[in-house]
């Protein structure tokens, strides 16, 4: 099949980019979307044109490195799928495909389809963990965890941190991402001691990073390649509100962020 690509090309450091048209010829339906781009890139290099930069790594839908918009939908038209696992058989001969990077104030474009998602790392650094140092753990079976709770924790923990939720959200909110980590740890007895502080710190960091506010639109859940349920946002709000009340004696204020904003970032 043949498809026409319209790809966002943005030089590094440039404030603006533009859509550039490419023809992808003789595309096999067994190719993944990224393999189709590989072939386009090989042809570009042979012609002496710079290849399209895009992030990718494991190419089996688990590392969370890849992701861009295809015709306005994060990770493309197939639900529960990252672009690396999306295959060309889902497209038709003659299709026009518009490919753009994640767009959010918190995810600045680096080049072409590559964006900077280090804000996610800083949200985790603010409190997305259980404070247990190596060597201090009791026996694995010392604290029973009900199967049901473990399963729900796992549902939330399946998040791959790709950023599709932010890209799809009209507010560019990171609520699904943050809620998923809060829910994963809140479901487990091991996560209980720090549960209130965790919600406070992570939510405040999310705001610090200039993500928008969640208004329950649900686009995030619709595009999430791991189909994380929007319920995690309700859990996050619950924990945050509860903690804001119960932890009043030692309030966390936005002007005293939980950590240096740059703590999780680059050198």
């Amino acid at each position: 099949m043949n498809v026409t690509l319209h790809v966002w090309r943005q030089k590094q450091g440039a404030g603006k980019g533009r859509m550039v048209r490419y023809e992808a010829r003789n595309v096999s339906e067994d190719m993944s979307f990224l393999e189709m781009l590989d072939v386009v890139n090989e042809e570009l290099i042979e012609k002496g044109e710079e290849p399209i930069a895009f992030d990718h790594d494991c190419r089996e839908g688990i590392c969370g490195m890849c992701g861009f918009m295809i015709n306005g939908v994060a990770h493309g038209p197939v639900p529960g799928t990252t672009v690396c696992e999306l295959h060309m058989r889902h497209f038709k001969d003659g299709d026009d495909l518009y490919i753009e990077p994640w767009r959010a104030r918190a995810f600045p474009v680096i080049k072409d389809l590559v964006v900077n998602r280090s804000a996610f790392d800083r949200i985790i650094a603010a409190g997305g963990y259980i404070s247990v140092s190596t060597g201090s753990a009791p026996d694995g079976n010392a604290i029973p965890v009900p199967k049901e709770k473990a399963e729900r924790a796992m549902d939330a923990a399946a998040c791959i941190g790709c950023g599709a939720c932010v890209a799809a959200c009209p507010n560019a909110a990171a609520a699904l991402f943050t809620g998923a980590k809060i829910t994963h740890l809140a479901m487990l007895p091991q996560g209980a001691p720090e549960r209130p502080q965790r919600a406070l710190k992570m939510v405040l960091q999310m705001k610090e990073e200039m993500f928008g506010h969640c208004t329950n639109i649900g686009e995030c859940e619709a595009v999430c390649p791991k189909q994380i349920s929007i319920e995690v946002i309700a859990r996050m709000n619950h924990d945050f509100i509860r903690a804001s009340w119960s932890e009043r004696e030692a309030p966390y204020r936005a002007d005293q962020p939980a950590g240096e904003p740059s703590a999780g970032g680059c050198q």
Partner: peptide, 22 residues
């Protein structure tokens, strides 16, 4: 042996039996 203990304490959601054991 220590690895499993450490990972459980960190909140790794290992598969569980109905009684809550790993």
């Amino acid at each position: 042996l220590n690895i499993i203990d450490q990972c459980v304490a960190q909140g790794v959601p290992f598969a569980r039996e109905y009684g809550g054991a790993l």
